[in-house]
């Protein structure tokens, strides 16, 4: 079969023949569409019965795949593939068009150019409007950081409690035990989270000047990694190391959580603690340095 097309300009185009003798492909296309229809019916039934993810996924695959294969096969085997040739237009405009364009542009500029002062005023008013009106938006988004990154909720005398709110006594942790603790007034706090580790039975000094910070073998460190702020929760008891799960920074528990491996640049800040007269664990003071990752203002 051959069709001769005639477009509105009256010119006769070379005809494009359809592809004949492709009975096999027609059957493939028809079969694909039929499979798709059947799968869609199945999908309907599956939805009706309440649905099940794997059945839905498999049937969707068959449904969509059937349509896809049918369409591609139709477009690939049952219609002529060419190759046809199409010329590219020159992207660049013709010289006369460019001149006309520039002429128009310059004419407009000449007409505007006579009032430079108005132009500057327009720039000022629009620019100022834009800048000034960003501020309410920006300032409402959140508070200024101020000193927030330098401090934590911990303060002197804070009662140390577990996630469940129970105070910590000498017997709470066995040697080789670990627990996440908070000040009693900020349980679950993202900034005040602290790991409490018991490394032995006797007082432990991690670094000179921290002689009273490790009563009865209890050591408390900020749980926020100094690298990217992940909770440092992996305690390796035999090697006495804390590992950060995100980027594998390794801290040595016995020597003040100094980083020994990985990308963390600073030790985890240590919280000075003591057992009060009732035997409950309390903070001697807050952290002596900002906790967590670095930031610009931190010297």
């Amino acid at each position: 079969m051959s069709i001769t097309e005639r477009d509105d300009s009256g010119a006769s185009h070379p005809a494009i023949e359809t592809v004949e003798g492709k009975r096999g492909y027609e059957l493939v296309v028809a079969a694909s569409f039929m499979v798709s229809v059947l799968a869609t019916v199945g999908l309907g039934v599956s939805y009706w019965l309440g649905g099940q993810p794997q059945i839905e996924g498999a049937l969707l695959f068959v449904t969509l795949g059937g349509i896809g294969i049918g369409m591609v096969a139709w477009g690939k085997y049952l219609v002529p593939q060419g190759p046809y040739v199409q010329e590219r237009e020159t992207l660049k405009s013709e010289i006369l068009e460019r001149e006309a364009f520039l002429e128009s542009l310059e004419r407009g500029q000449r007409q505007l150019g006579r009032r430079p002062f108005l132009g500057k005023l327009l720039g000022l008013s629009v620019g100022l409007f834009g800048i000034i009106n960003i501020f309410p938006f920006l300032r409402s988004l959140g508070p200024q950081p101020k000193k927030a990154l330098f401090t934590t909720p911990w303060k002197a005398g804070a009662l140390i409690v577990s996630v469940g709110g129970a105070p910590i006594t000498v017997d709470t942790l066995e040697v080789g035990g670990i627990q996440t603790v908070f000040p009693s007034y900020d349980v679950g706090g993202a900034i005040s989270q602290t790991v409490l580790i018991r490394i032995g039975d006797t007082n432990w000094t991690t670094l000179p000047g921290r002689e009273t910070w490790g009563p009865n073998g209890y050591l408390a460190y900020s749980k926020i990694c100094t690298h990217a702020g992940c909770p440092v929760g992996l305690y390796q008891e035999l090697t006495q190391q804390l590992l950060c799960p995100c980027h594998q920074s390794l801290f040595d528990v016995l020597t003040g959580a100094t980083p020994v491996f990985g990308p963390a640049p600073r030790p985890l800040p240590q919280l000075p603690i003591y057992f009060d007269s009732k035997g409950n664990l309390r903070a001697q003071a807050g952290y002596d340095q900002p906790v967590g990752p670095g930031f610009w203002e931190r010297g």
Partner: peptide
């Protein structure tokens, strides 16, 4: 019991 490198969780923990 906290075998190996695993921490120990006693009855008070």
């Amino acid at each position: 019991t906290g075998p190996g490198n695993m921490p120990r969780f006693g009855p008070s923990t």
